[in-house]
């Protein structure tokens, strides 16, 4: 019985600057509903580009994607209510308080004031931010900002959440809180598409992963399968990753 994919990425190409190397070069992927799917790859592999195309923020040069059967470019308005986005950058208003930010973004989904208040209270408590709810984001630490950024993406109970390196550059405590929450979210049936270059994190979090490099799919499967398939030398996902993508240092951005 063939299950139709929840997210369908078909021969996606993206060239930012004509004549330069493409950021995506014929990427094809399918992701099922209910997965925590890890999009892994070194810096500059094309993870953010993929997520941006899925969120209709940039247009592909070639190829298309579908979410829940809707074409992203053409039917994005039908997709909007389904998705939540946790961007790589902190995308919240720095001069507003955590509460004001969440109130504003939440209301864009048409949630009532009363309902929003409850949800914001719940999430702030969960992310250990209740004490700081009336502080301006400007005064927050990096980890605190990330947590508010995360809440802003999940506040409206989306069925699919995109997370672009949600744990990059933060302290262990914040990271723990976020990872635990992502597991919890997935247990409730939410599909997560999560990008990272941290293999250990992906190994114990993801149900399926794809490793991409130079905008191309290198390998796709469950973490366990990938480790087994490769050399006996590879004991962790990180080993697999290094074997597949090479040991050269990547420093684009």
């Amino acid at each position: 019985m063939e299950k139709t994919a929840y997210i369908e990425i078909n021969n996606l190409c993206k060239t930012y600057i004509k004549g330069k190397d493409p950021a995506l070069d014929g990427l094809t992927l399918s992701i099922n509903k209910g997965e925590i799917f890890g999009l892994l790859g070194p810096n500059g592999a094309g993870k953010t580009t993929t997520i941006s195309i899925l969120c209709n923020l940039i247009k592909p040069t070639k190829g298309y994607c579908k979410i829940n059967g809707f074409n992203v470019e053409k039917e994005f308005n039908l997709i909007k209510p389904l998705i939540g986005v946790v961007s790589q950058e902190i995308a919240i208003y720095k001069s507003l308080t955590a509460y004001e930010n969440l109130m504003y973004f939440g209301s864009m989904y048409g949630l009532s004031k009363k309902e929003l208040k409850e949800r914001i209270g719940y999430f702030l408590e969960k992310m250990n931010l209740t004490k700081f709810k009336n502080e301006k984001i400007d005064h927050f630490s990096g980890g605190m900002k990330r947590r508010v950024n995360l809440i802003a993406g999940v506040l409206h109970d989306p069925e699919l959440v995109f997370l672009d390196e949600p744990t990059v550059g933060i302290d262990v405590q914040s990271r723990r809180v976020i990872i635990d929450y992502l597991k919890e979210l997935n247990n409730e049936g939410v599909t997560l598409l999560y990008s990272s270059h941290m293999m250990d994190e992906a190994e114990n979090l993801c149900s399926g992963i794809a490793v991409i490099d130079y905008g191309k799919l290198v390998v796709q499967g469950t973490p366990k399968c990938l480790i087994e398939q490769n050399d006996s030398k590879c004991k962790t996902l990180e080993d697999v990753f290094l074997q597949l993508t090479g040991r050269n240092v990547r420093d684009y951005f």
């Binding site: 209709n56 986005v85 961007s87 950058e89 902190i90 995308a91 864009m108």
Partner: peptide, 13 residues
């Protein structure tokens, strides 16, 4: 630049 606009673009507004 803050990315807030991008966030809003993914929202039903």
């Amino acid at each position: 630049y803050d990315g807030c606009l991008d966030r809003l673009k993914t929202m039903p507004v």
